[in-house]
């Protein structure tokens, strides 16, 4: 894949647009609880939709002070009207605008919360990268934001990119917990070529929500739930969601390195910065998608950007 937007094929542009929509929506939602100014902007309800014709929309919704995001066609909130729709006329416009480059975006008001939604989005979209880059951001927070972004990118890449399909089909189905350390975890379910967020075993909350409330996958493993007579060998079998594999990072910094594409997963495994337990081929299937998603995430809107513009 070429590293610049102008060089991508139409199919690649669609994948990248889906990734950008999902990652942006999830990051702005995640940033809301990390920035006091954003907390103030999310004190009243609103619903914001990010849309590209022909692609599943992404939604950011604030309800009673809690900001949540959905993307890739998931979520009950999609059936409700949006206070504001940010319509990108094309996948290319979406990719450019969400990468900070000039492009077309049409704000379409649809409800009383349109102004609030727009103010929040502008502030959050600026805050998310600032939080990620700030040296003052604790590694766990950075890992959580990056895990959010990486998981979104994985899901959208798997859904839209035909390139990864054969390798994903080859991998067994199941649920994998990605544990970035410091209680930052997500559970992903793989079925065929589809990936989706599922609640962490032990939680009753929805996709992507409340990882800190979940039963730690490693803790479940260590709890001895797989002792004979106390379960069926797999710790997850004692939970509603069976965990087929666990990709655990030594610490958030290790997770950040791999999830951002800076360090190959196989290298991190060898360096004992990451470990796989359980159904290894399932995680290997995810690595194939992660490799591909990392390439999409590295695409720059403009060639000049390489020179530090």
């Amino acid at each position: 894949m070429r590293p610049f937007l102008d060089d991508l094929t139409a199919a690649e542009l669609r994948v990248l647009a889906r990734i950008r929509l999902a990652v942006t929506a999830r990051l702005v939602a995640a940033a809301a609880s990390r920035d006091p100014a954003l907390a103030e902007l999310s004190s009243r309800n609103f619903r914001l939709t990010l849309r590209v014709p022909g692609l599943p929309r992404a939604v950011v919704a604030c309800l009673e002070g809690r900001v949540s995001a959905w993307a890739g066609g998931e979520a009950p909130a999609l059936r409700l009207p949006a206070d504001l729709t940010l319509l990108f006329p094309s996948a290319r416009d979406c990719c450019r605008v969400l990468d900070g480059a000039p492009g077309r975006v049409l704000p379409i008001p649809g409800g009383l919360g349109a102004g609030r939604a727009l103010r929040f989005f502008r502030a959050a979209a600026a805050a998310a990268p600032r939080i990620l880059k700030s040296p003052d951001t604790p590694p766990a927070v950075r890992a959580e934001l990056l895990l959010e972004a990486a998981v979104s990118a994985l899901i959208e890449t798997a859904a839209e990119d035909s390139y990864v399909r054969p390798r994903l089909e080859h991998a067994p189905d199941g649920t994998v917990v990605v544990d970035a350390g410091e209680n930052v975890r997500r559970a992903l379910r793989k079925e065929g070529t589809r990936l989706q967020l599922v609640p962490m075993p032990g939680t009753a909350t929805g996709p992507g929500a409340g990882p800190k409330d979940g039963v730690g996958a490693e803790a479940a493993v260590r709890s001895g739930a797989d002792r004979p007579g106390e379960g069926r060998g797999n710790p997850a079998r004692t939970d509603a969601v069976r965990i087929d594999a666990i990709l655990a990072f030594r610490d958030p910094a290790a997770a950040v390195a791999v999830l951002s594409g800076k360090k190959p997963a196989v290298t991190a495994l060898g360096a004992c910065e990451a470990s796989i337990r359980g159904l290894v081929p399932l995680v290997q299937g995810l690595f194939a998608v992660l490799d591909r998603a990392s390439r999409y995430l590295a695409v720059q809107a403009e060639k000049e950007a390489r020179h530090g513009r």
Partner: peptide, 28 residues
Amino acid sequence: SRGVFERAVRVIPGGIYGTKSPGFLIPG
């Protein structure tokens, strides 16, 4: 082993590739 592996990843893709890759076993 790990020290050699750290050198390896600089000059060999994946450090050790294929079926001998540490990830196929249990690193550590």
